[in-house]
Amino acid sequence: MALLDWAKKADFDMMFKRYNVIIEGPAIKPEDDADVKKVLPKDEPFKSLAMAVIFGDADKAVQAAKSALDRVSPLDVIEKGLAKGMDAVSALYAKGAYFLPDIMLSADAMTAAMAVAEQKLGRAREKKGTVVSFVAEGDPHDIGKNLVVMFLKANGFEAVDLGRDVPDKEVIEAVKKHKPVMLTGTALMTTTMTAFPRVAKALQEQGISVPVFGCGGGAVKRDFVESYDMGVYGVKAFHAPKLAEAALAGKSWKDIRKEYPKIVGEFVAEYADRM
């Protein structure tokens, strides 16, 4: 067979390059990474809490939380231990050392341990702010929205998940009820993404302003999102908490459009003209 002969003779470098293999550095332990070292607590019990989150080990995280609660306050367990672990995970993900499943397992570990701390606290910890998330009416594709919700929760936001195939009216009602710092909408298809300008217009007509209406998904593009007020094109799900934090810090949707790459802290090809 020609394929086998060609495989023996061909110089693959002249045909393609697997850049992911070429750029891969040596394997290091997560705790030895320079960016992780910056956020990783040095003292116990916080280091153990953070490490359990970094390794995505829910059982260990719960155990560490139970044991830590004998010595420190529930809020410290969350803020000085678990949240630091999640910060480290975000840093590892941003640089390509961690992958999506790692983040999910870490988020699960954090959620499980946080429940233990909140039980002791007697209430849920105060969230940074509320975000409402939905998938456009007529659209059943929700993996993007689920990622957005996960990243928001892991970063200390209250994420109100309206689900998929959500009628515009339900979105408006949820915005009225929760007064979110950010609204997110996702859609896979060109004809379902038209829900976004409809929602934006309906909000404006009712005199409601949301600091940021982050929109993204398969067929959604920046020029479309920037064709209506409040819309900010969200490129990656993990950018969502950074956009919400920018809104919390007082940035408007107009500011966020202009400063997107700076806000998310990395090169974003879709916003190359605004780097």
Partner: peptide
């Protein structure tokens, strides 16, 4: 499937 993708399961 989505659950499996997100958690590497």
């Amino acid at each position: 499937l989505d659950y499996g993708v997100m958690r590497g399961d």
